[in-house]
Amino acid sequence: MGLEYFSFADLWSPVMMVVSLLIILLYSLVTGPWRERFSASEPVSKKRQAAFIAGIVLLYLAQGGPLSLMGHLMFTFHMTAMAISYFIVPGMLIYGVPAWLWRSIFSRPFWRPFRFLMNPLLGLFAFNLLFSVYHMPANHDWIMTHYVIHGFYYFVMLGAAMISWWHIMCPVAEWSRLTNLRKLGFIFLNGLLLTPACVLIIFATTPLFSVYNDPEVWTRAMGYCISGNSAEFLSQFKGGPAFFSLMAPTDDQQLGGIIMKLLQEFVNIAAMYAVFMQWYRRERAQDDDPSFDHASSSRLNNV
């Protein structure tokens, strides 16, 4: 793809690398030596720690590592980075943070005015709306060529994705707002709502996004990814993004849409399986407990 033309800083974003390492260090301290400072804290399993650290590393690779730069060269890599950032990473981060730490952070009075953000309907629609609006061609090109807006929009989408996945795998039992049956419906609708945007991209017969087809727009977008005199540096690549692309623009666009949808469906199927098995194991445990009040449980689950 011609990545040899770019510097280490262009490919690996040292600032985001340092931020990611600091987050991992802080997490390791809070769940390790500093754990006793938190009330009702418990040891965090190696599995949870590995999930959180892997989630941060994946987010860095998608938004700060080579995949981020490649996402400005080909639409396929752009969609791959988005799928990793918003379908895979949120669940890993939520799972990696122990329940006692979630309680310690979000039980504070400061968060009370923001509780409306945790409404399941908002969690269902917010990310899908943000994603769909972003991938309207004119919006996409404008956001990609305005660095501050681009960074802010990606941060908001990550927050919306975290809220959406929170309702599916809520790690704090008393904060869960959905029964297992409703979680299955939530996952199904989540996949359904993203389908129109993916279909638009997959079945388009002409290139939709100027960032990947117009050398002038591409140069403006790339200017935020590389150091030094970006216009002079990029002028050596005749044809702009076509110089780096491995396929025709329409094929690249269609493949990107397919990868996005397939990865979402794969993650959704895995989530539905996990929710169903959790439901099944709980029902089996209750059936084996003669003191369990099934009538009361049924009424509570229908609230």
Results as ranks from 00 to 15, higher is better:
143 I>K: 04
3 L>I: 04
3 L>V: 03
1 M>C: 07
50 A>E: 02
115 R>F: 03
73 L>S: 03
16 M>Q: 13
79 M>F: 02
209 F>E: 03
96 G>N: 13
289 D>M: 09
240 G>R: 02
42 E>Y: 05
57 V>D: 02
281 R>I: 06
171 P>W: 01
42 E>N: 07
271 A>H: 00
126 A>T: 14
131 F>K: 02
190 N>V: 04
109 P>G: 10
145 T>F: 13
85 S>C: 09
21 L>R: 13
224 Y>S: 15
184 L>S: 04
118 M>N: 06
137 P>K: 05
273 Y>A: 09
12 W>F: 14
47 K>T: 11
201 I>H: 07
205 T>H: 14
136 M>Y: 02
130 L>I: 00
222 M>Y: 05
29 L>G: 07
288 D>G: 13
242 A>C: 07
285 A>V: 06
64 G>M: 06
108 R>V: 12
143 I>A: 11
179 T>F: 00
64 G>C: 04
73 L>G: 01
146 H>I: 12
90 P>F: 07
291 S>E: 14
265 E>C: 00
89 V>G: 03
44 V>I: 02
278 Q>D: 15
294 H>M: 08
226 I>G: 11
157 M>T: 06
53 I>W: 11
196 P>I: 07
41 S>A: 05
42 E>Q: 13
220 R>Q: 15
119 N>V: 11
80 T>A: 04
278 Q>Y: 09
145 T>I: 09
18 V>S: 12
222 M>K: 04
258 I>F: 01
13 S>H: 05
93 L>S: 08
146 H>M: 12
119 N>F: 09
156 V>W: 01
